[in-house]
Write a protein that binds this DNA or RNA. Structure first.
Lengths: 184, 184
DNA sequence: CCTCATAAATAATACATGTTATATAATACA
DNA sequence: TGTATTATATAACATGTATTATTTATGAGG
């Protein structure tokens, strides 16, 4: 048999980069094939259909997101830095942000679910000590900051135009302080 | 000449209801024609193309949104009721919310622009008196609440599942209080 | 009553996309 | 060396959408 020229990884890489750089609408079988310089066959031999490829791309995007956030979180200011990182993700990785957070989500039933899904338990414990507040109050600060951050992030991602990093940083700080003050 | 059976208004109504009930993806020429029980010709005789129909539908959606919010705003609690109304819009008019706020926006360049676009000057003046705060501080409260509200609204609109009205009302209240407290 | 302007229907065209059927050719292995 | 396997290409098919060309027939005005 002829040796394999196209790998599953190549297809995934090209699809992911298309999603990242041009938006998921551009992740169509023809574009992937053209980019690689092959026919559509290899794509269908490695993926059942385009839907299953999409799931895989979303998985890769989620990994990318996690590492994007992770590398920007600072141990001394977990919540603020995480908030800023999320806004940066919306601004500089707009297409991936839309793919991950502006389509169907997992199906949240309460804000507590949001915390369970996005929140970092360790951070909560740490913050609880630092702010001298019980964990449930820190959790509430956490949830409210996630919501506020999501508001800023979606506005940036859908607004087209740019809002200066300093301006968004400033308003995130203010919100964070407001939520802490509320719990004191 | 034969008398006009299909009017521009009929087409707009059908398109708007499709957008509202099934999402804008369903606003395609064939669906409109089927719904009315006519061919595609009338649509093209009243609208240059589907893109111009879309702009008209968005205009109608914006009017609908304004009246939706307007009928729910209470004079004694303008900001809170406006926030709740926006969340209700995201929850009960999800398709229109997505059409208006989760696609391309007008192109905001600062949070001040957000205020200019969404804010209500009269409300600011009124609140300034009520809270005994200078207008620029009220404006900041306004902006932050819009952002927070938008965070809640998008999570509800994209989350698929439901969050109880009381729960979202409660968290909006808290955020509002937090932002006021911050400015005092 | 005729005729013509035109609203609407019918039907064709163009194009994008997903998917599948068939052909080709490279190579592992007998 | 020959053959069977299979990676990939070529090309077809199905479907959905926008758009346009052509036809039909209605009713206002002469």
């Amino acid at each position: 048999m002829p040796k394999q020229r196209i790998t599953k990884q190549m297809i995934l890489d090209v699809a992911f980069n298309l999603a990242r750089e041009k938006g998921y609408e551009q992740v169509v079988v023809k574009n992937i094939a053209d980019e690689i310089g092959c026919s559509v066959q290899p794509i269908y031999s490695y993926f059942e259909n385009m839907e299953s490829l999409k799931e895989t791309v979303i998985g890769a995007a989620m990994q990318f997101y996690n590492s994007f956030i992770y590398t920007r979180v600072q141990k001394d200011s977990i919540l603020e830095s995480m908030a800023k990182a999320n806004v940066a993700f919306a601004k500089y990785e707009t297409n991936l942000f839309k793919l991950l957070f502006l389509q169907k989500l997992n199906g949240l039933n309460s804000f507590n679910d949001i915390y369970e899904w996005m929140g970092d338990k360790q951070a909560t414990a740490q913050l609880s000590k630092k702010l001298e507040l019980p964990e449930d109050k820190v959790k509430e600060i956490y949830i409210m900051l996630i919501i506020f951050t999501h508001g800023v992030a979606t506005m940036i991602a859908t607004g087209g135009a740019t809002i200066a990093d300093e301006e968004s940083a400033e308003i995130l700080e203010k919100a964070y302080n407001a939520f802490i003050k509320l719990q004191k």
